[in-house]
Amino acid sequence: MIEHYIEQVSTYAADIDNLITMIAVITGFWFVLVEVVFLGLIVAYRKKPGVKAQYITGEEKHQKRWIGIPHELVLLCDIAVIIGAVRVWVDVKQTMPPAQETVRIIGQQWAWSFVQPGPDGKLDTADDIKTVDELHVKVDTTYHFKLEARDVLHSFSVPVFRLKQDAIPGRVITGWFRAKKTGTHDIQCAEICGIGHGLMPARIVIESAGEHNAWMAAQAALATK
């Protein structure tokens, strides 16, 4: 459902979209059913001259069935939704595939900074590559990100990845993503962070391995200059 509005670029985007579609089908069924019955009853039982309303307490067993059975069906649907939701959640947020690359993401008023390991392959060394408001990643590579905030809450959100995670000052939160298509997409801040909250646009550039390595080399060269 969501893919009609926005591309699926990460590996788990389809899982999340499928979950949303499943919920849409289940809730859509109930929604249509209840609204049809509801509107139908309004039409069917409009006041007619000489016809008195029926006296139904709803307390007897055969009457209660009319709400009891749907109620149990709702419970079944709920269980299906919970199972679906937890499965997706565990995959996306709770467990993480092993990292091929690691990137540090720092939110501050009002910009995103990205720190990638330089040629030595380690974070927090002198040759780290730092960029602002532009994140370059390789396609088909599992990235772990370490999310931090300098001042207030921010939220790192990449709609095409279906990824979102709040950044909290004082904490390091780890997450992962794996892009499956090249391209350039938006990063939004999804947690109000002050006056410039709407002015915090960043871009994520997903490149092929060759392009990415070329970019890394250029950045490293810039840094040493």
Binding site: W30, V34, V37, F38, L41, I42, Y45, R46, K47, K48, V51, K52, A53, Q54, I56, G58, W66, I67, P70, H71, V74, L75, D78, V81, I82, A85
Partner: peptide, 23 residues
Amino acid sequence: VLISIPIAEMMFVYVATLYGGSI
């Protein structure tokens, strides 16, 4: 997700109240 059960039931009750009425 389970809190949908009492709320749904409440809505069912209201719809059921219309049945047989003189609206």
